[in-house]
Structures are given as structure tokens and as C-alpha cells.
Amino acid sequence: MATTATRKSFGQVLLELGGKDENIVVLDADLSKSTMSKMFADKYPGRFFEMGISEANMIGVGSGLALAGKKPFICSFACFVTGRYDTIRISVAYSEAPVRIVGTHAGIGIGEDGNSQMGLEDLGLMRGLPHMTVIQPADDIETRQAVTWMAENDVPSYIRLTRQNVKDVNGPDYTFKIGKAVELVPGSDITIMATGGPVYHAVDAAGLLKKQGISAGVVNIHTIKPIDVEAINKYAKLTGHVITVEDHNTIGGLGSAVAEVLAESGAGKLNRHGLKDAFGESGTYQDLYKKYRLDAEGIVSVVKEIFDK
């Protein structure tokens, strides 16, 4: 099965979109080689603006370009771009400026660079903004279609992408629908709701759990906002128990979004798995996913703890 970093899928599809729509402009803050916006920059230098290490200004310039009718994609690491929160709040969300915000290097999956480079609170930040659509794709084909959706829709949006390679979880006939969760594995005992980098680990975990007699379904939540209320309630009722899995703080991210839905509906029980009110640290991606139990074995152990109680 093919693996790719979703930031790379982003860079490739942005290049393709650039050839189809000359209103697309791209801004980066000295990380174009890492965010992969460089592919666009090399092909369309007249529509690429290197803003230097000045994220707040990049966000504001993106706002002006958007209000003038362009389709700006502004790119940096998730932590750096969403760290300039007030500028996004006023110049993008409140202004209803259709800026496409791209945050790469999501979560502990970035590895050795450590916590200061890890976006671990960005989903919570972006989810809290009125008018903001928040997307986190799980694989190559989903990223391509999600980025295309962003290009085609004139609304403020945020997409969160991985540094590390992720395995495909969707087939070649996959169709991305904004705001609609995707069932990847059917299950009857518990539903794992995952997003982003850990999704394929969740699929692998479901396979391991099956061998141990636990029928765990896996649902990929690629749109964090608007959250798919209907699907969350449906799967919660179906299996009675939901566990969210994300490479993000459990406060503010997918776990919180699902908790809000289930608290209001009472459709099922919930456990949240991810970074538990904690910062990240240095290490290889594999070692970190093992330590924080975001790989398949880790997810299996977390699910089994729920059943053992």
C-alpha cells in the first residue's frame, strides 16, 4: 500500500491547481521546502510570495489578497501560523476573508525537532473561530481532494498536514465530501474515531483487535469543523462506545469536538486519546508514536484498557 506525507500530496495538488486557476496565489514564511509550497513557487514564481519569517504579516497580506479576489494559500508549520491567532481571528475569520491556511508538521509525528515545532493545539484554536472550516485529511487522495475543495470554496479554511508518511486508507474511487465522516472499518463493539496521521494506525489496530475478539469500527473524521454530528451520533448509538484518536492535545481537538456532540445527544460513551494536556518532545516519529500510544499497538492497548475496566 502506498505511503506519502500529506504535505507532499498538498504540494503536488497545489501545483496542479495553479495551472488551472490563475487566481491561486501562494505565500510562505521561509518554510516552502518543508511545507512543499516550493513546487508551486518554482513553476509560478509570479504568483508566489516569500514573506520571510513573519507569519502575522503573511496572514494579513493573505487577507488583503483574498479580499481583492485572489485565492491565497498561506503556508507554514501548524504551530507557527496558528500561533498568530489574533491576526487570523480579525484579519481572516471576522473579515470573512477567504484565506486558505495551511499548517504542516502536525503533532508529535514531526519527530526529532521537538515540541516547539509541533502543532499540538492548532485544531482547538482554529475550531474556536466563527466562519472557519477546519480539515485534517488522512492520506494522499483525501488531501488532494480536500485542497481542491479549499481552492474551489471562497471561505476561510484551515488544513492540517503531516510531515511523516502515512499509509493510504482510501481507495482510488474515494470522493471527499466536506463535513462527512468516512467509515473505514465496520465494527460493533466500539468505534474508533480518528483524524489525520493516526488514522491508518487505527485501521491496523482494528485488525489486531479483531484477532483478539473485539470488533472495533474505524471512522475517519477529516472535517473537524463543521463536525459530522449525524455520523458521530449514529456510530455512538451503533456501538455504544466511542474513542477518539488524534495526534493533538485531547483538549480542543477532535476529542473535544466529539465530546461536545455526545454530551448534547447522550448517544454513547466517549474516551479521548491523544496528547493528554501535554507538550511533545524529541524522538523519532516511530518512538514517539509508540511512547504516546498512537501506533497500532498503542491504540490496541488503549482500547483494551477500556474493555478491561
Binding site: N57, I59, G60, G64, A66
Partner: peptide, 8 residues
């Protein structure tokens, strides 16, 4: 910054 976006 917004004005710069308009100017670009």
C-alpha cells in the same frame, strides 16, 4: 498587512 495584500 491587509493593505499590502491589496497592493500585491
Amino acid at each position: 498587512s491587509i493593505a499590502i495584500g491589496y497592493a500585491l
